[in-house]
Design a protein around this nucleic acid. Structure first.
Lengths: 210, 210
DNA sequence: GTCTATAACCAGATAGAC
DNA sequence: GTCTATCTGGTTATAGAC
């Protein structure tokens, strides 16, 4: 479940992240105590503090991990330039869909704990924090009045569609299998973004993860 | 801001709800203490407990209020039957858009505090709880394998699009004015749901609220 | 690298006076 | 309807032994 797969069995740190991801998603970040995490990992509360300096840092680590693993943290930074070119926009959208679907357990965590994540302290000066960078890029794009309102609404809608469908895949929508879901989602997003047939990329490729 | 507008100035109960809505949305439900709410209202913590039996009941009250005000709590219950008829589906979608946009401050609260809301105890046996009923209806629709996957993905996408756009309207997307935003969103949703031109309703009507 | 023990704190909630 | 005062319990986090 957690990456870094050598043959080795997962380190304590990795097990903490796995358990945290599960509990934070199921019960919510705030309602999950470190004592509870520790019990499920099979260590004591204090042991957690050896691996992470604070509860918040566990949440941060989960977000970072997902963004780094998900296509190297680059594909989530849409720009106005990309948005102007239907072909590039379509390719961007497909990559975003694959990233969200393959990392959907972490995106579920994100969607269910937006408030807690927003309240996260900034990690010591502009270092890292891919998550916030990504949010700011999207925000800038949506408020960029140089882009026609119609297109901005389409961007927001596409993002919402991807997130909602990926979340649905964890609650019953996914019964038909991930590849089929991916295919239908990609088509829906192409419609939302009004990508002309000539600019639509072929849809092969595969997906992984939990 | 809070409904029930006779000429009267808002009751303490109403002011508690207004302040809670603001703070819960800005900082998150779990990170907002009742002491903080009380201070902003201008009363003491204990006074809150006269009006509400618990912190959770404040959150519940906010959700109920929105669903009741928003088109009488009915329009959010999509059924497989409605989904089969393009005309009815389109009309349903438009009403949903208007409800979410007019109550968007509460929907922001919902989106940012999904975990806390999911953890809310059920209000004493099947009474009320429009919020959970609505979530279950949507969930049932998305997992209903009698409906083609393609259409279910479209439903999920449409819902996501409406929510994302409404949230965007509170963060810069709304600069062009709500009516224009509503118009573009409605068009996008018609595309997502693949409503044929002949079944698309005309788009007049207006919006209100904060 | 993991433990025991405990510090320090603050939350939600209640009792009862006014 | 609002207050003061207090209780109870759980939380993050730390110090220091092993």
């Amino acid at each position: 479940m957690n990456q870094k797969q050598d043959g080795r069995s997962p380190s304590t740190r990795e097990r903490i992240l796995d358990v945290s991801l599960r509990l934070f998603s199921e019960q919510g970040y705030d309602k999950t105590s470190l004592r509870e995490v520790a019990e499920n990992v099979g260590v004591t509360k204090a042991a957690l503090y050896y691996h992470f300096p604070s509860k918040e840092s566990v949440l941060s680590a989960l977000l970072e991990q997902a963004h780094v693993l998900g296509a190297h943290g680059v594909i989530f930074f849409p720009t106005a330039e990309i948005a102007r070119d239907p072909g590039r926009l379509a390719a961007f959208a497909i990559r975003a869909i694959d990233t969200v679907l393959s990392q959907r357990s972490v995106f579920l965590l994100m969607e269910r704990n937006r408030a807690a994540i927003a309240a996260l302290p900034l990690p010591d000066q502009d270092h890292g924090d891919l998550h916030r960078q990504m949010e700011e890029r999207w925000s800038a794009l949506l408020r960029d009045s140089a882009i026609p309102l119609r297109q901005r609404v389409r961007f927001a809608s596409a993002l919402g569609a991807v997130m909602a469908t990926a979340m649905g895949s964890l609650r019953g929508l996914g019964d038909a299998g991930l590849p089929a879901l991916r295919q239908e989602l990609a088509l829906a997003v192409m419609d939302i973004l009004e990508i002309p047939a000539s600019s639509r990329p072929p849809l092969q490729e595969s997906i992984g993860e939990s």
